[in-house]
């Protein structure tokens, strides 16, 4: 079977995590020319409640498009962490929001935390870019695409007037995780 790397973005509906998943899949498939698919949970839980978006990246075509058990998981809320951290591979990675996930579920994976929402609010000044911070952070954590590819995919998605804002958000997320991993 083809080598595949699976990432889950989870949090509350409306936090932009489906968009984050789409951008990551675009970075891998359109920009880097590899294979990627993105899927999302949708339905009654799509607004508020726990929502998730999953991306599978591989060097070969991906037969089955749904993530099964993931290599890395982001959880922006406690509810999402409780619900979705169980499906992480042994030795995998879990990144949580410091302020919103007070009790990250323990398991056979490494847990990292950065204050994603707080960074969006205080350092960028706009909570709406939390998903772009999260994306930068997950790319730093996993190295699943190049830093520049992720940034390029983000910027391809946003209107001219918001380019600087999103660039700042992406870089903040990326650097905070790299600092954490170095320390």
């Amino acid at each position: 079977m083809a080598e595949r790397y699976e990432i889950r973005f989870s949090g509350a509906g409306g936090q932009g995590l489906i968009t984050a998943g789409i951008i990551l899949a675009e970075a891998a498939s359109i920009i880097e020319g590899r294979h990627a698919v993105q899927s999302q949970s949708y339905g009654p839980e799509a607004r508020g409640g726990a929502s998730k978006s999953e991306v599978i990246i591989g060097e070969d075509p991906i037969d089955y498009p749904k993530a099964t058990i993931v290599d890395a998981c982001l959880a922006m809320t406690q509810e999402a962490a409780d619900k979705y951290a169980v499906g992480i591979k042994p030795g995998g990675l879990l990144l949580v929001d410091t302020d919103f996930v007070k009790n990250p579920p323990k398991g056979d994976y490494t847990i990292y935390d950065i204050p994603i929402m707080r960074t969006a609010k205080l350092e960028v000044g706009r909570e709406i870019v939390a998903n772009v911070i999260a994306l930068g952070a997950m790319i730093a954590l996993t190295d699943v695409v190049k830093r520049e590819s992720g940034l390029q995919a983000v910027l391809a998605k946003v209107p001219e007037a918001f380019i600087e804002l999103n660039k700042k958000a992406y870089n903040l997320g990326f650097e905070k995780v790299k600092e954490l991993m170095a320390g």
């Binding site: 294979h35 990627a36 698919v37 993105q38 899927s39 999302q40 949708y42 991906i62 498009p65």
Partner: peptide
């Protein structure tokens, strides 16, 4: 539904 309808593929 979902497996294709809401799944993005190249």
């Amino acid at each position: 539904g979902f497996y294709l309808s809401f799944t993005r593929e190249p």
